[in-house]
Amino acid sequence: MKYAFYPGCVSRGGCPELYPAAVRVAGKLGIELEEMKDVACTGAGVLPQYITDPINARTFAKAERMGLPIMTICSTCQGVFGQANLRLQDPEYRARINREYLADEGLEYGGTVEIKHLLWVVMEDYGADHLKAMISRPLKGLKVSPFYGCFLRRPPEVITPTKETNARKSYLEKLIDIVGAELADFGGKGKCCGFPVLTANEESSLSMTAKHTSEAKSKGADCMVTPCPLCHLSLDGNQPRAEQQEGTSIGLPILHMPQFLGLALGFSPAEMYLKRHIVSTMAVESKVNMMT
């Protein structure tokens, strides 16, 4: 199993704990990664499509040349890529992008690249049974709420184009089950974390942070797990400000999906960089440490 690894900006920027955690987890599982280094940011849904479609087509063309599927570790990267790749399935549009933007560099995108988030890679390519066999530290007694990030849920034509892919909407719950933890399900798991409006409407953004984290907390969650570092910035990084705005105290640790899986694979909390979070992960760490 080998992938063209697209780590995205945030996994080494705002959430520098994510990149090494993901690399360690992939290594342990025997998933081979060849990192894409000379490629651009996806645009994250911030830059307009007329700019991002060409630069993403460039990334796809490079992966195609490597002969590898792309692996992401961010819901937003995954979503923006997926949406762009869908548009680039139109041969006329693809030909125009190739001609106008990629030809100079001698690149051409043929429309064949497959793009998968690490969560999909472990659930689909690696497989649940295989994964189960790798669990060395079942996270028994840990209550976990899933939080997907919009772009790993919608739009349906990108995320769940076939019947089989419908299962993608419950991969996190399945993962929580596989690692032996307990599900603290809640209604907000597929909603927006608030990050995209942090600039335009901070109050709304922080309200969303508070809403989701307190709802999960009220369902008895010890922590929340997310496959999206932008959600992490919002739910973890902004949690103190959200608490302040709403006048409540929440204190819910937020784990990146690779960190969470890593703990079950036997990595120590330190090896998964849990100390780098804004909201203290002490409660999770002590529970996990008791399991070893």
Partner: peptide, 25 residues
């Protein structure tokens, strides 16, 4: 906590000039 990125440490990616050209175009 070693979490936040520090602006002046942000470095150029290889291929940045090619990306810039696409954006400008």
């Amino acid at each position: 906590r070693g979490k936040a990125p520090i602006p002046f440490l942000h470095h150029k990616r290889p291929g940045a000039d090619k990306i810039a050209r696409i954006i400008e175009k």
